[in-house]
Amino acid sequence: MTPRYNFAFLDEDTKRMLRRALLKAVAIPGYQVPFGSREMPLPYGWGTGGIQVTAALLGPDDVLKVIDQGADDTTNAVNIRRFFSRVAGIATTERTADATLIQTRHRIPETSLREDQILVFQVPEPEPLRTLEPREAETRTLHALADYGLMHVKLYEDIAQYGRIATSYDYPVLVDGRFLTSPSPIPKFDNPKLDRSPALMLFGAGREKRLYAIPPYTRVESLAFDDHPFELQSWEHHCALCGSNDSYLDEVVVDDSGTRMFVCSDTDYCSGHRPEARA
């Protein structure tokens, strides 16, 4: 642990401000709470929102796992994990089941989460209506009035253009039957894991200075049309490493001649399912 910093990098006042915002977010599921986002020692887009939420939550006994697109070993994940072990001196892990707090970019772990775990999402754009309505004052009013017909315009356009709802990530959800919410750019494959999850889910957008939450066991519904219901992606392939056919697969190019293989995006899940692990 580097002694020059306060525990978990942020000063206590900032953490208190963040915790207050988080309590409000939990109290109003899906509602975007503004907060005083701080400059962090890494650029916007690298998870500054998620890091601030994590910093406000960490205690000395927490065990932190960080994933980026499901993987523990990518640059972003490794950096954030190392950052917190240096500024907070806490234990880290790559195993989902061992973590008390998981910060994630673009995935929800395949292993089911528990009530004693918290998932922190890094969010680039918290406002699901933004591409359709650029005015912040207007989107706030639409949320206040629960006037969400506009979101279906995007889904309509998808079907009109591609014959189906082609939005495959950051798929809009309605939280607790009230607030239209961006689940962050997770694949829609992960949307069902949001619904009535035992773990608390927190979302931080550093550049946009917004937090929001999906408290445990909250109803989360993916938007759809009556005749075009919400559907999950599926693969004809199995994971080339562990043989799983029920996890989210990445297509990976493995050599210069373009050979491809499909592997689990969740590296922890994958290593736990390989034959040698099962044996």
């Binding site: 359709l132 006037d147 315009v153 995007k154 309509y156 009109a160 049309f225």
Partner: peptide, 21 residues
């Protein structure tokens, strides 16, 4: 920035119509 069809359908969707066809 959306198609002619979506422009016409938008007000119906605002009224809660959710049947694409």
């Amino acid at each position: 920035n959306v198609s002619a069809g979506a422009n016409v359908a938008e007000r119906l969707m605002a009224l809660g119509m959710r049947h694409y066809s």
